[in-house]
Design a protein around this nucleic acid. Structure first.
Lengths: 210, 210
DNA sequence: ACCTGAACACCGTTCAAGT
DNA sequence: ACCTGAACACCGTTCAAGT
């Protein structure tokens, strides 16, 4: 469903907008204005809304890109020597990515996550996370009841804890990622009171027709 | 520094505003308008800004109240029979509180947390958390290197992970709270790569003069 | 088919006029 | 000393006019 291909100038503007928006939002967070983004891209404000239904959708498109980049990082780690270290490294990359992007954190929280684009990217990311988790699990280091979706969600958690203290201590997230990671280890595993979210949770509330 | 006491009508309006705002923001989140809050309180829009420097400060005042309520809950748990269960119950109460208040989560993330009022309440809450943690630690269930501040921050984390999936599965936070709590147990404790935040982190960037 | 910027609606914040 | 609502500035979004 990639419609028909965009006209050359439209495709170019779309790319310019995505790049400008990613830079602007990373620096100023989601409270940066559309006018600011349009100016940085060198297009009129109206063009933003021709390409993206709303500011939220624009953020969603960028978030989806970021998630796919992280998925690529994860895929590369699939043939690392130490599976457990690889899983930790994957999560570290994810948290680090957020720590240099003010909008990443805001977007992960917001309603944006409900957009099909973002859900699809989340799904791809969760698959990679699942593969990484599986390898670490086979090594005996990671508990049985943890899924790829869990890992993806906990990556957000590790950063969001420290977001408000970020300016005071930019590396604080390392502490909480380590604490959370210890919760994934088999040594401390206590039964979980609630089932993991599944494909359905991420895909819910859409696709009425088949 | 509670200035001189407010005039009777002003004190009454302030209370009406806090109540109206807490209700409105809990239901609609921080994107509810000031006009909406003022109408619910039965005062003019201008009155809101006479009492609170900005919308953010209003949210901060409410957040501080919520934190103090949670601190009270924690204090009550200090003489529970099972210290470890008490710590978990404390954290559960905190996450549950957020899950029924749309603005709580947003406020915890935002710059609001930097306000002196909120920092002071956080500090009080961290002290209670520290006492609860200490009891559980003496029982041998909780690792040595975890502080009250850690516990407070992880309470936010546990909920924020699931905020975007809240509508799909409102009880999902229970899973992540359990996972995170397992990370606090002594069984899985691996050395943490970064020191805990201290009083200074929460109090930073203010009080130039004494 | 796409771009543009003027126009619109909405909202946080200010302030002159009231009590 | 405090309240009020009209006025202001800003911003997301729309759309008629252009190419």
């Amino acid at each position: 469903m990639p419609q028909r291909p965009l006209r050359a100038d439209a495709a170019r503007n779309r790319r310019l907008l995505l790049d400008a928006a990613a830079g602007t939002f990373a620096e100023y967070g989601m409270e940066a204005s559309i006018a600011q983004v349009a100016a940085r891209a060198g297009v009129g404000k109206g063009t933003v809304f021709r390409h993206f239904a709303s500011k939220e959708y624009l953020v969603a498109a960028i978030l989806a890109d970021h998630l796919d980049e992280l998925a690529a990082t994860g895929t590369a780690l699939l043939d690392a020597d130490d599976p457990t270290a690889a899983l930790l490294e994957f999560m570290t990359a994810g948290v680090e990515r957020q720590s240099v992007d003010r909008s990443f954190c805001q977007a992960t929280t917001g309603a944006v996550r409900g957009e099909p684009q973002v859900r699809a990217a989340s799904e791809r990311l969760a698959k990679v996370a699942e593969a990484l988790t599986d390898r670490a699990r086979r090594q005996g280091a990671v508990r049985d009841d943890v899924t790829g979706h869990d890992v993806v969600l906990l990556i957000s958690a590790a950063y969001q804890v420290t977001a408000p203290l970020q300016s005071a201590d930019p590396a604080l997230w390392q502490r909480y990622l380590a604490l959370i990671f210890d919760g994934l280890r088999s040594e401390a595993a206590h039964p979980l009171p609630h089932p993991a979210p599944g494909r359905d949770q991420f895909t819910a509330a859409t696709d009425a027709g088949g």
